[in-house]
Every structure is written in C-alpha cells, then in structure tokens.
Design a protein around this nucleic acid. Sequence first.
DNA 1: GTTTGACTTGTCAAATTGTGTCAAATGTAG
DNA 2: CTACATTTGACACAATTTGACAAGTCAAAC
Lengths: 96, 96
Amino acid sequence: MLNHLGQKIRELREKQNLLLRQVAAKLEVDTALMSKIERGERNASKQQVIDIAKILKAKEDELLTLWLADKLESAVGDENHLASDALNILKKNLKK
Amino acid sequence: MLNHLGQKIRELREKQNLLLRQVAAKLEVDTALMSKIERGERNASKQQVIDIAKILKAKEDELLTLWLADKLESAVGDENHLASDALNILKKNLKK
DNA sequence: GTTTGACTTGTCAAATTGTGTCAAATGTAG
DNA sequence: CTACATTTGACACAATTTGACAAGTCAAAC
C-alpha cells in the first residue's frame, strides 16, 4: 500500500466535493500534476504539502507525516529484508 | 552521528591495515571518492557496498543495512519531529 | 626545512533524476 | 453524441548526483 499522502488528499478532497482542477488551481499547478500527486506518481514538495493542508483544511503535521512516510518508503525501495534493522539504527539516533 | 556505513568501512579497513588507495583500486574508483564515501560526503551505490563488503571480508547484509540506515536518515532530513510517527506507519507496511 | 606518502578538498563536465506543462487519451454521466 | 473530469505520455528545463582530476593539508622521515 504505497502512497499514503495521495490517498489522504483524495479522501479529503472528495469529502469536500472539490474537483482536482479546483485544488490544482489553488495550488497553482497543472491539474495533471495534482492527479499524479494523488496517485503517488509524483511526490509533492514539502511546501506543496503545507499549501495543500491549508487548502483542504487539514492538519499540516498530519499530512507532512504521511509525506515523510512516503519518502521513507521509497528510500527503503525493495530492501524490505534490511529495513527492520535499519529502522532500529535510525530510532536510536532520533532520540538525540 | 551521521554516516554509519562510512565509519564502519573505515574501521574495517584500518583493522586490516589497508590504505584508502588500495581499497579504492580494488573498487576501481578514485581515492578521493573512496575518502568521501568513508566520511559520508558521498553515498556509495548499492553495488559499491556489495563490492566493498567483499573487499573487506565483511558481511554484505551488515554493510547494506548501514547503507540503508544512512539513506533513511537523509530522507528524514530535518523532520525529526515527524519521524517517529512516520516510522510507525512504515513499520506497519513492512509486515506485509 | 624539504620530501614523501596518505588523505582531503574544491571544482568540473557528464549523466541521471526531478519538475511542471501540454496535448491527447480515457472514462463517465447526461 | 457531448461535455467535463481525470489520466497518460511526451517533452523541455532545472536540479542533483556522479566520478575524476588537480591542488591542498598534514604528519612522519629524512
């Protein structure tokens, strides 16, 4: 289940009966790009996520967390078998 | 404490009394690049990590895990405050 | 103090990857 | 069929990454 952010955005957008086109306009990007972001074909920039949160009246940190999770997932790539150990190393360092 | 892989490589190399230049030669890269890899100024490619493991008689998966941890760390960037939640999302998906 | 050898640093061109747009295609409701 | 929303693929352009080279630092030997 890739692409947490896009799914969330789509869910929020549809719940508010907004068109892709409308959100894209507010974000000032092409509708095609917005479509790609929702489907996870393209990554949103951090600033775009912040702007989208505002447009969709969502909590900025909630969307940014999903955005980060997606980034991490693509960093893991197909190394799932190593990921668990790597995450443990990571966690240790986060504490600081 | 960034750069787990580079530190490990240097440790292994020094323990075997090998020169940067020698390892670089076996890897078929410039000594300067090898230096950067050890200091974390440049990332090694996956293939390079595999080759280095062989050259330094280390366990391939051990080095790859450090390599992945470094990748993840740089993906987190300066979003430490979101990382913990993002990692939890990640973990859930790794189970599959 | 000069030389030597190990390592580091800065800079560069080439290659790769990322970005947003456009036009065309697809899907879907009326 | 028409109209409109969304998706897809191709593209130009920008940004980043890559590895090499040359010049630099540093310490120990002489």
